[in-house]
Computed example of a mutant assay.
Amino acid sequence: MPSQYNITLKDASKDDIEKAKQDVRDKGGEIVSEFSLIPGFTAKFDDEHVATFEQNDKITVEKDAEVKTQ
């Protein structure tokens, strides 16, 4: 079952972001939303593909979770 992840890219061009989104789709994933302030997006894909994305130094992958303030 796919999990939801936040994918952010460091020093990324528009082409880098589009390639990352296409990589998600190629692995059977789905783009859920795109960020407007930082280069990145939220996507759903199988946990087994996380390591594939983490091999790229420009990409950070974090499991999406609720954030609370005190």
Rank of each mutant, 00 (worst) to 15 (best):
E54S: 14
T52R: 08
E66I: 12
P39L: 00
E30A: 10
S13Y: 10
D26I: 08
T42P: 05
I31D: 05
V61T: 09
T42M: 10
K58S: 08
P39N: 06
F35W: 13
V50I: 12
D57M: 11
Q70S: 11
F53Y: 13
A43F: 06
D26K: 15
Q55T: 15
I17F: 03
I31N: 05
S13T: 15
P39K: 00
K44I: 03
D46V: 13
P39S: 02
M1Y: 02
E54V: 15
D23W: 05
E34D: 15
K44C: 08
D64Y: 01
D11L: 08
M1L: 06
R25T: 14
G40R: 00
A20W: 02
G28W: 08
I17H: 01
N56D: 15
E48P: 10
E18S: 15
G40K: 00
K14V: 13
G40N: 01
D15F: 05
F35Q: 10
G29T: 10
Y5T: 02
S3L: 07
K27A: 15
L37W: 09
E34W: 03
V32K: 09
K68F: 06
T42D: 10
I7M: 06
G28N: 05
V50M: 03
K68V: 08
S3I: 04
E62P: 09
A20F: 02
D46R: 15
S36K: 12
Q70M: 12
M1I: 08
H49Y: 15
E62L: 14
